[in-house]
Design a binder for these strands. Structure first.
Lengths: 225, 225
DNA sequence: GGTTGACCGATTGAATTCTCTCGGTCATGT
DNA sequence: ACATGACCGAGAGAATTCAATCGGTCAACC
């Protein structure tokens, strides 16, 4: 097999960096492998020593970005020393998501950025929803959130809501727009009460579960199938 | 002026009916004025005795459908004899919305149904959000819902959430789909607690306001600008 | 007066052609 | 060994043409 140095080389890293910049700027279709190679300062052939195809390169990039997104989420969450709350977790998740163009693109099926890559369906969205389902189920187990709504329904709902919020830029008329952070904060306030268990469970356990599952999600998403 | 019998004739009504069927089935672009005329059993010229243009016909249809949507919402709400709750209001609103292809299309910017009509921006979405803002503001006034989140933000949030839920069919992977009604019901449960005021106000007053504003919305949306 | 449908010009989009870009390979050079 | 970039063939898309359609009008007809 040709392009498969299993260890991530430094060149590979640089490739992903320039690829990220170019893809984010011009989209998948309008960024050629040659563009990426030239911008990285290597030849096109060298790109194929690192990745077997353009698709594979893009997939690797997506996985890296999803991993980074989870890490960023976790970072924000852990360094948040205020009161633990669901509001904050949601805030961190959505804020991190809105920051990363690739995660955002996958979650909203952004045609501009993804272009013809949209045909290839990724497991990324599915895995994200699965992770959310597991997260909610575990939180219900320890009594951190209400358990009268199936975890699967909650995951579905949260994914739909995230989709709506992240897409809001595209369809809400300007005069009714609200800063993203304000919207996210308000959503957090709603969920804080809306998801609360009848009898509050152990907040530390909940915090632990979130960190644990996010970490699991990070490693799962960061590595290709 | 040519096409402007101010009173809605019976022919006009029949026109709108066949137009609704054809537009819903084939979309705006692929439905010709001739198709509508023929299917209605009149000549193309007669269409222009009722409406000055194809766009105007479509706009009239949209307004009629929005009016019907509000009426349907109101009907469901009023005949719901269970406990009053925000959950139910939201359920009725979303269920009614999901039932009407034109309201759904406008709310989700459905390219298939709206086609080239998408360029013409309607006031329908704006008016809907405005009405929601007013609704939330009034409910806050009488203490029916929490008032620590600006009404405008709530309206923005609810619109985004609705968008996400109604669009969920298009982007949620099949294996994670949840029946629309289940999702809506769960959302209702969340909002019921999430939006509750610290000290509950008069539920009858809230109910009255909702009916009042929805009725106002109905007449406003049903008549062209 | 009310209604029709033939008619008009603009627009669209189907069909076709063709250029050139791009993903991927590999003989060659370092 | 590794990296290069000329090279290849497929195919996307730009350019062009052209015929049909469609929105809208109006003289003619009930």
């Amino acid at each position: 097999m040709s392009g498969a140095s299993p260890i991530s080389s430094e060149r590979r890293e640089r490739l992903l960096n320039t690829a990220a910049a170019l893809f984010a700027r011009w989209g998948f279709d309008k960024t050629s492998v040659d563009d990426i190679a030239r911008e990285t300062g290597i030849s096109k052939g060298a790109v194929y020593l690192e990745f077997p195809s353009k698709d594979a390169l893009f997939m690797a990039l997506l996985h890296r970005e999803f991993g980074r997104h989870a890490a960023e989420w976790l970072r924000r969450f852990e360094q948040d020393h205020g009161d633990w709350s669901f509001a904050r977790m949601i805030q961190h998740s959505l804020a991190a998501m809105n920051t990363n163009p690739f995660v955002k693109a996958i979650m909203t099926r952004d045609k501009r950025l993804l272009g013809s890559f949209l045909r290839r369906d990724t497991e990324l969205l599915k895995d994200t929803i699965s992770a959310r389902t597991e997260l909610f189920a575990r939180l219900q187990e320890v009594g951190a959130i209400r358990d009268d709504i199936p975890a699967q329904t909650l995951a579905f709902l949260m994914t739909s809501i995230s989709f709506g919020l992240i897409s809001s830029d595209d369809f809400i008329p300007d005069e009714h727009k609200v800063p993203f952070d304000d919207g996210v904060r308000a959503l957090g306030l709603l969920l804080d009460r809306g998801l609360a268990a009848e009898t509050p469970g152990d907040p530390e356990a909940a915090r632990e579960i979130i960190i644990q599952i996010t970490e699991k999600m990070r490693t799962a998403l960061a590595s290709p199938p």
